[in-house]
């Protein structure tokens, strides 16, 4: 069966064990997690977990149903019409061509966020596909470290 990529948001009670329930579910039932982010929802006692996963339609349906079944889950949103963004931080030596790097990062909604002794740190925030392109494009400036943030998504 053909595998599809899905972004799923899970609205859960903000409790200590709830992330373990969610990640345990994926591990125990053999589902795949490409990325997972979690943060509290402002005002109230809920958190949003955004998961990017891959699987056949049957598997995706099971994932949403199993997530829904958890006692601490309020709602599962299987995104179709959404805005999704991912952030990346990349560290370069300041011996590289800084103005090129800056121009490149601003093309991906980013810029230089820190200049230290010998290194600069650049961020970009964009769709995952574009973040991948950005990382590939920065390759020739010899990145020292690349940190991706995982996806957050919101319904349109």
């Amino acid at each position: 069966m053909q595998e599809v990529r899905r972004v799923i948001s899970v609205i859960v009670m903000n409790e200590s064990s709830v992330l373990a329930w969610v990640s345990g579910l994926f591990a125990g039932r053999g589902y795949n997690i490409e990325s997972l982010t979690v943060a509290p929802i402002p005002r109230g006692n809920l958190s949003r977990i955004t998961i990017v996963t891959k699987g056949s339609n049957r598997v995706i349906e099971q994932i949403t149903k199993q997530l829904n079944k958890l006692v601490s889950t309020l709602k599962v949103i299987e995104h179709e019409e959404m805005v999704e963004k991912e952030m990346v931080l990349i560290k370069f030596s300041n011996q590289e061509n800084i103005s090129d790097i800056q121009a490149l990062s601003s093309a991906y909604n980013g810029g230089i966020v820190n200049v230290g002794e010998g290194v600069i740190i650049v961020m970009a925030a964009d769709e995952s596909k574009r973040i991948e392109n950005f990382i590939a494009a920065t390759h020739r400036y010899n990145p020292i470290e690349v940190v991706r943030g995982g996806i957050v998504a919101i319904e349109r």
Binding site: S16, S17, A20, W21, G24, G28, V71, S72
Partner: peptide, 16 residues
């Protein structure tokens, strides 16, 4: 206990 029992309980609580 809550960690071990998570995959084999409907729900569990650690009372804090």
């Amino acid at each position: 206990a809550v960690g071990i029992s998570r995959p084999c309980t409907k729900h569990n609580y650690l009372v804090d």
